[in-house]
Write a protein that binds this DNA or RNA. Structure first.
Lengths: 335, 335
DNA sequence: TTGAAAGCGCTAACAA
DNA sequence: TTGTTAGCGCTTTCAA
């Protein structure tokens, strides 16, 4: 069926050996300009392309990197992917995207799929449901380069990129306080995620700064990251049903933010002030509205990829790792 | 660095030949139950995985399929991707996603990247800017299985999946007419896209049915698919500046719909009624609001993948091709 | 039932 | 400067 031309075909046609052809193709030294042009012209004519699979087998690397995110339909992640692609392509790498849908099993399957010599390294943001990290630790121990972004695994020794989740959460909460809110609920992501912990600290710090007591009842975790809208609606309903209803919501992620706004609308609680993490580009269209903490998603992807490629191409084993924390930006409603 | 175990390691450890190990691993016949178990147990113990690259080279296929869409940040496409993945994984295929960002050059690059023996087939929705199809036609002629979905290439003989764009557009336009609108503008995608033509026909059919003259001045094409918001704002501004201002908009795609709503809000024209194609799941939060034509994106992805795999795994050359047209669903505002 | 050997497409020592 | 050859990991005839 699909039968691409090989180096052998060229060799035969030109009456050369495959190695000569190979050398000519890769612009080698040790070859006469004449032969080289001959080969190059012919290759061009018949539209020859090196077989990347054979190359991979030979070089024992694939020039492709794997990405694992919870889902591409999430603006934050699709922007991050754009950032990843921007440097990957420039450096000659393919990008293979896979989605965990915030499920542990999917994450394991995807990583194993990617790992087994078909990618040279992996960039990952953990699934909300992941609590066991063996699948990643094992690969890392085997020497597969892994870089974390966004939802990182603190305990693993490798490069990491996050945004300043603490500060972002602080600003979002402070904004609500300054707008006069006193009972600020926090709809959080799965408890074990790094970002959840950081954002919670920021939230609490803001409350403390203004002398507002931290009330654990006002904090709800969505263990599945809001994978099903039910989960979020449940959380919102519970908060709204409290004897002393919250007067504001601080929401910890893009998906949760959308879910909360929907739920608030559904329950007719549009008057409640909302701020939260979201990279949506149509946020100004939302009603009820939301003040957003923006993460530099593209930049995070870019940096994570630089880091990964530096690991992949490192001549000597790397033992100094870096954690980059990028600034967030706060956008109050209507700006 | 990363050094996975090979079949050879197993052979050495167990004092067998590589061929025996290979046979045992793939549950072959011609092998004693005893040896088989021995190998299987050992392989399990050391967590052996076959090297997919070597396999690909050998079998001359990669068990992976390539996808080209304009962007994953678009809900329609991310849903379609979920559909594609759902069947691909079940059938043992990897999925490699790439984005054209509606640019012709990116589409060409991506396709060539994917094609050269690293994928067994391609599922594609054309970039808005693509007007020349040689890059696809050549591959198809070479025997690489290709399936189109959404933005199809009518002239190519292969399987295709679309939704009923004509009917969807008809319903969206008819709705506006029934709400009393008389001057309905149409913000369309790039003119050469299959979906643009179909949706325009649906729009015009509806107008004709109700005796409203088709006014070409009310139709604006966005040649870049709304890749930059400027393009959409320009289109909206021009329409709003007409001596007889339109009283409604029919918008032809998800991206354009978002862009139009933003632009309408910006120009203070929220009173204009809007309907259009959109698979957004937070559409009820939008202000101004929009009535949506929903496409069965997941289903389209699913079917396209079934089709592609049937082409890939076909024992004999296929020469009967199918075009599936799926129904859309119309959701008036507030339902 | 097992092993030896060839080959998928390519590169790189080594020889000529 | 060019060709010969071995080998990347795996499967698969063919022989034993």
């Amino acid at each position: 069926m699909f039968k691409p031309v090989t180096i052998k075909d060229i060799a035969k046609a030109l009456n050369l050996s495959t190695s000569t052809v190979s050398r000519a193709l890769r612009g080698g030294y040790e070859i006469s300009e004449e032969t080289k042009q001959l080969v190059l012209n012919y290759a061009e004519k018949i539209n020859f392309k090196r077989n990347p699979i054979a190359l991979s087998l030979k070089e024992r690397r694939s020039y492709s990197i794997g990405i694992v995110v919870c889902e591409v339909a999430n603006v934050f992640f699709s922007q991050a992917i754009d950032g990843i692609e921007s440097v990957a392509y420039k450096r000659g790498y393919h990008v293979i995207i896979s989605q965990s849908h915030d499920r542990y099993e999917r994450e394991v399957t995807n990583i194993e799929h990617l790992a087994n010599r078909s990618v040279d390294g992996i960039i990952i943001s953990l699934a909300a449901e992941t609590k066991n990290y063996e699948h990643i630790e094992r690969l890392n121990a085997q020497g597969l380069p892994i870089v974390f972004f966004d939802r990182i695994l603190e305990s693993m020794e490798t490069h990491k990129v996050t945004s300043d989740n603490r500060q972002g959460a602080f600003e979002a909460t402070e904004y609500l306080i300054k707008r006069g809110c006193k009972r600020i609920a926090h709809v959080a992501n799965a408890e074990q995620l790094s970002i959840t912990a950081q954002r919670k600290i920021g939230y609490e710090d803001a409350l403390k700064k203004y002398g507002i007591p931290v009330n654990p009842d006002l904090i709800t975790y969505c263990e599945h990251g809001g994978r099903e809208q039910d989960e979020v609606e449940q959380a919102v309903a519970t908060l709204l049903a409290m004897p002393e209803k919250p007067d504001a919501f601080f929401v910890a992620s893009d998906r949760l933010s959308m879910g909360c706004l929907s739920a608030l609308k559904k329950y007719g609680a549009e008057n409640i002030l909302v701020s939260g993490f979201s990279n949506s580009d149509v946020v100004e269209l939302f009603e009820p509205s939301i003040s957003c903490v923006r993460q530099p998603a593209f930049e995070m992807g870019r940096i994570a990829t630089e880091m990964l490629i530096s690991l992949i191409e490192a001549k000597y084993p790397v033992d100094e790792y870096e954690t980059r924390i990028l600034n967030t930006e706060f956008k109050p409603i209507g700006t």
